[in-house]
Amino acid sequence: MDSIDVKQKKIHKEYQDLANSISPKSNIIGNCIRAFLVGGTICTFGQLITNIAKNYYDMNTEEASTITSISLIFISALLTGMGIYEKIGKRAGAGSVVPITGFANSIVSPAMEHKREGYVMGVGAKMFSIAGPVLVYGISASVVVGLVNYFFIR
C-alpha cells in the first residue's frame, strides 16, 4: 500500500508543479502599489477627521480616535450599500480590506446579502459571518493581555 501512496503523492506533486507553472501569478507589484495608495488615502482621511475632532471639538486623543472609527465605518457602510465599496475593493485589495472600513464592509455585505432570508437569522446572524471571528479573537486576546498585566506586570 505504501508504494501506491508514495506514487500517488508523486503524481500529485508533479501535477501541482505543472498547474503552478501554467497558472498566472497575481500582479503583486501592481496590487501592492494600489493597496499602499488606497490604504494610505483612507488613513490620511482618518487623520483629517482626528484633527478636526481634536482641534475644533476639543476631544482628547482617545475620543478623537473613536469618532474617527465611527465616521469611517459610517462612510464604509454607505459606500457598501451603494455598491461602491466592492468596486474599490476589486482594485485596491488589502488597501480597502485592512483599514477599519474593511471591517465595516465585512459586516454590511453579508447583512445585505442575507436580507432575503429574514431579519433575524438572515441579517442578524449572518452579519457576523466574517466580523464575528475578528471580535472573538480580538477581544479574547485583549482579555489575555489584561490578565497577564494583572497577574505578572502590575
Partner: peptide, 28 residues
C-alpha cells in the same frame, strides 16, 4: 499617516497574494 497606513495595507496585500489567506483570516 499616509505612509504608515499604506505600509500596513501593503503587508496585507503581500499576505493575500503570497499565502492564499482569505480576507476573513487576514482581518483576524
Amino acid at each position: 499617516a499616509f505612509i504608515i497606513g499604506g505600509l500596513i495595507c501593503l503587508i496585507g496585500q503581500i499576505l493575500i497574494d503570497k499565502t492564499n489567506l482569505t480576507p476573513a483570516r487576514i482581518l483576524v
